[in-house]
Simulated scan of single mutants.
Amino acid sequence: MSQARPPFPPFTAETAAQKVQGAEDAWNSRDPQKVSLAYTPDSVWRNRDEFLSGREEIIAFLTRKWERELDYALRKTLWSFSDDRIAVRFQYEWHDAAGQWWRSYGNELWEFTADGLMSRREASINDVTITEAQRRIVGPRPTEEHGMDIDLR
């Protein structure tokens, strides 16, 4: 049984932005179980070169991800939307076990069911090495910065 997750499609500029901010906030929790609840039980994903299906695979993927991507902090920006789809650009920063910092750039395509759960997620992501001094994403986004765009570089 799935639980409804507002805002619901069809999206407006305001509700699409709310959906994006909600996703950013959830992912910044780094709680795979919490994040998985935004997706349908049979949600399908492509994340880089991995293909996932269902919440259990999503939870396992996110658990591995946040064990590897330490001090993960994310920013998402609404790029475009239609009735039941949203396109997002994002950046996140993290470091590996050896202490190397990374900035990961990406785009996501999302599709939603009528009850507001994401049924499809496609993510294309590239990683760039950075120094700790080059970091600009630290922790969850402050409320006063919600909706602000992120720099390309």
Rank of each mutant, 00 (worst) to 15 (best):
M1V: 12
M1N: 13
Q3C: 09
Q3D: 09
A4V: 13
P6K: 00
P6Y: 03
F8Y: 13
P9I: 05
P10Q: 15
P10N: 10
K19N: 04
G22A: 12
A23I: 09
A23D: 13
A26W: 00
W27D: 04
W27E: 05
W27S: 01
S29G: 10
S29Q: 09
D31H: 03
P32K: 01
K34A: 08
V35Q: 09
A38C: 03
S43G: 07
V44T: 14
W45M: 08
R48G: 13
D49N: 11
F51G: 02
G54E: 05
R55W: 00
R55N: 00
E56M: 01
E56D: 11
E57C: 00
I59Q: 01
L62F: 12
R64C: 01
W66R: 02
R68K: 15
E69L: 07
L70N: 01
Y72E: 04
A73R: 09
T77L: 09
T77W: 11
L78S: 05
S80T: 09
R85W: 03
A87G: 09
A87E: 10
A87P: 09
V88N: 07
R89I: 13
R89A: 15
F90W: 08
Q91E: 10
H95C: 08
H95E: 01
A97S: 06
A98I: 04
Q100A: 10
S104T: 11
S104F: 04
N107T: 15
N107E: 12
N107I: 13
L109F: 12
L109E: 11
W110E: 13
D115A: 07
D115S: 09
G116S: 10
L117G: 07
R121G: 12
S124K: 09
N126L: 10
D127R: 11
V128L: 14
T131E: 12
E132G: 14
Q134L: 13
R135C: 12
G139C: 15
P140Y: 05
R141H: 02
R141N: 02
E145F: 15
G147D: 14
M148I: 13
M148H: 12
D149K: 13
I150H: 06
R153V: 11
R153H: 14
